[in-house]
């Protein structure tokens, strides 16, 4: 009895196949073309292609997929929570906190690694946690756990941290300033399996919570009053969503930097494909987000090889025009859930 326009089961069959193809195929693509026989053969490997494949490209593709899935799913959750088309995973200041942490690391000029985690990632994650605590605390200051207060607190914290980043850049020398700028563009370079292991649990926890809350996300989409009257513990669900998605986004930003647009546009594309029901939308966002970021990263490391374009630039270059199309040319239904509130 579901609306035919929204019931496209083939999309949810096609997306896993697309994701599998992407995960298996992208490591072969890059500056150096790596033949299948070299990767799985046992013969000589004069160009270290096998090492490049297994130690560099495979973990990088895994990171890209995890980060894309996490950002897209969290963006979808924030758009439902705030009922706002412009909500992104970074709306609540997590990216601002993480960026400030990374900028501080660069400005201090220290260099260390904690087990397999780089110092920049450690600082970025601490910054993300700091922003989460700050936004959470500011929201709790007011009675209840108001979405509007949380949104405004997030925006205020983000702006404040952005100003501090600019101030740090102003105090930095040319090299440090470039390093900070480069980090802010986001990227998946020099990742190893350690980064995959660090990121997987945080994205895993975030996605598990979202999969457990798909009914609640549907109900939040139709408004908080109706959600309460259907039996949703709205403040509790909002708190859980906020904390789980923030840790997930904090982990992604700490490892990859603030990669923009994935978290905003992938949910919109998926909504056009499978409709607004989060029971279909969430898996679609995870798969499409993973595929999208992996393909963007593959393009980032090949279009001007041997140099690399920061993946955040690629996603933004694609995301800007897409968003304009979404605003002016999308088929009816593209932005329906999520009316844009200034």
């Amino acid at each position: 009895m579901m609306s035919p326009a929204r019931n496209r089961p083939w999309v949810l069959v096609l997306l896993p196949l697309l994701a599998a193809g992407c995960l298996l195929g992208c490591p072969f693509v890059g500056m150096e073309r790596i033949p299948f026989a070299v990767v799985f053969g046992s013969g000589p490997d004069p160009g270290n292609l096998r090492t490049i494949f297994w130690q560099i490209r495979v973990p990088r593709v895994c990171i890209g997929f995890l980060a894309g899935a996490g950002l897209a799913a969290c963006g979808m959750a924030f758009q439902a929570l705030f009922r706002n088309a412009l909500a992104t995973p970074f709306t609540l200041g997590v990216a601002g906190g993480a960026s400030l942490g990374a900028a501080l690391y660069v400005r201090l000029g220290v260099s260390f690694a904690l087990l397999t985690v780089s110092g920049a990632s450690v600082f970025a994650f601490l910054g993300a946690l700091g922003s989460i605590c700050l936004v959470y605390g500011l929201t709790r200051l007011r009675r209840g756990f108001s979405t509007a207060t949380m949104l405004l607190a997030g925006i205020a914290v983000n702006l404040f941290f952005s100003s501090l980043i600019l101030f740090l850049q102003y105090l930095s020398d040319f090299t440090q300033s470039f390093q900070i700028l480069r980090w802010l563009m986001g990227g998946l370079e020099t990742m190893g399996y350690g980064s995959v292991l660090n990121l997987a649990p945080m994205v895993g926890v975030g996605l598990a919570v979202l999969f457990a809350l798909t009914h609640e996300l549907n109900l939040l989409t139709i408004g908080e009053d109706l959600a309460v009257s259907r039996g949703v513990d709205v403040p509790g669900v909002k708190r859980t969503l906020f904390l789980a998605t923030s840790v997930c986004v904090g982990g992604v930003v700490a490892v990859c930097g603030p990669i923009g647009f994935v978290g905003m546009m992938v949910p919109h594309i998926c909504r056009l494909l499978v409709g607004g029901n989060h029971r279909r939308l969430l898996p679609a966002c995870c798969l499409f987000g993973g595929v999208f970021l992996t393909l963007c990263d593959t393009a980032a490391r090949t279009v001007i090889a041997p140099a690399e374009v920061p993946v955040g630039v690629i996603t933004s270059v694609l995301g800007g025009p897409f968003f304009v199309w979404l605003l002016v040319g999308a088929p009816a239904g593209g932005l329906r859930i999520v009316r844009a509130r200034p």
């Binding site: 009895m1 579901m2 609306s3 929204r6 009922r83 999969f211 457990a212 809350l213 009914h215 549907n218 109900l219 989409t221 139709i222 408004g223 009053d225 109706l226 009257s229 259907r230 039996g231 949703v232 909504r271 409709g275 607004g276 029901n277 239904g333 329906r336 859930i337 999520v338 009316r339």
Partner: peptide
Amino acid sequence: PQGGADDVPFSVYEFVMMGRYPHLSAF
């Protein structure tokens, strides 16, 4: 409620099915 939300991205069937929320569990 009075009128209800306008920008609901669900079919009527899906919308009414949300009324079953108190009887459903996660996953």
